[in-house]
Computed example of a mutant assay.
Amino acid sequence: MGLRLLGTPSKDGGCPSLYEIEETGEIVAQGERLADPDHLAQLRDVKESEGFVVLPRELLVRFAPREAHVPDLIPFEEASHLFSEFEHTAWRLETQRGYASDQEIPEWQRFLRGDYVGCFDPTSPWDANIRRQTNEGKRFERVRIVDDPPTQGQLFLLASGLGNVEAGEDIRNLYRADARRLRLPDYDFWLFDSRVIMKFDFDDEGTCLGVRLIEDPTEVLGACQVRDLAWHHAVPTTRFQEQVRSRG
């Protein structure tokens, strides 16, 4: 079963933390064991298999789920209007090792032949929208999580990302080991105007099954914290490419 980090107030990667078991929605708490004998003596109906941890109130206030409702999964196309309607910032966390959609475009075959370097394409609706939005003073930003060594899909994104950067998007990269140390989430999402989350669902082949739009203030706050942490540690694309080549 998958375990998703809901949040932690720790700045050094330690406990306490809250997790969600994705298949059941049940919550797992990580914290220091309750050791005070007076407190232990006051616990009631304790089973032999049970344990107890001490959690700061801040952890529950900030990260405990507020509602059982899960937003409906909708086609990506039904939410694509957000990319032109946002007012200030669009920020993305990418965590997958590859995306099926990348392998369906002509650039993928050129990449496999070794003759593809991304560049701004004014005929591309995506590139044109980035250029238009950034010319209006808005920000398109993205952090990509990369394995070491990078997967084939991640190498393609490093190459194609140069075109996004030329269009006006600021793309940075972070090795997966660093992302785990920072306890970043392992799912993809866009964050629009620090107000709306577009969370992706992917299958095991990297095919997008749809997205969920989330406006719950607690989850949005958590996404903002992820953004600030990832952005602080991530490396701009051109410098990261040099790091990859030096390791290769």
Rank of each mutant, 00 (worst) to 15 (best):
R132S: 11
R132H: 14
Q133G: 05
T134S: 11
T134D: 11
N135T: 15
N135S: 15
E136L: 15
E136G: 13
G137K: 08
G137Q: 07
K138H: 10
R139N: 10
R139W: 13
R139P: 09
F140L: 02
F140I: 10
E141T: 10
E141M: 09
E141G: 06
V143A: 01
V143R: 00
V143K: 01
R144T: 09
I145T: 08
V146Y: 02
D147H: 15
D147F: 14
D147Q: 13
D148R: 13
P149S: 08
P149N: 05
P149E: 04
P150R: 04
P150I: 03
P150G: 04
T151Q: 02
Q152P: 09
Q154M: 08
L155R: 11
F156H: 00
F156N: 00
L158N: 01
A159W: 02
A159C: 13
A159N: 09
S160F: 06
S160V: 09
S160G: 10
L162S: 06
G163E: 01
N164K: 00
N164R: 07
N164A: 03
V165H: 05
V165N: 09
E166K: 00
E166I: 01
A167C: 04
G168Y: 05
G168I: 03
G168M: 07
G168T: 08
E169K: 03
D170Q: 15
D170H: 14
I171R: 11
I171F: 08
I171A: 10
R176D: 11
A177D: 14
A177Y: 14
A177H: 15
A179Y: 06
A179E: 04
R181T: 13
R181Y: 15
R181G: 11
R181N: 14
R183F: 09
R183H: 11
R183V: 10
R183Q: 14
R183E: 10
R183W: 08
L184Q: 04
L184Y: 06
P185E: 06
P185G: 02
D186N: 14
D186E: 12
D186C: 12
Y187P: 05
Y187T: 10
Y187G: 13
D188N: 13
D188F: 01
F189A: 03
F189P: 00
W190F: 09
W190E: 05
W190L: 05
L191G: 05
L191D: 00
L191C: 07
F192K: 04
F192A: 10
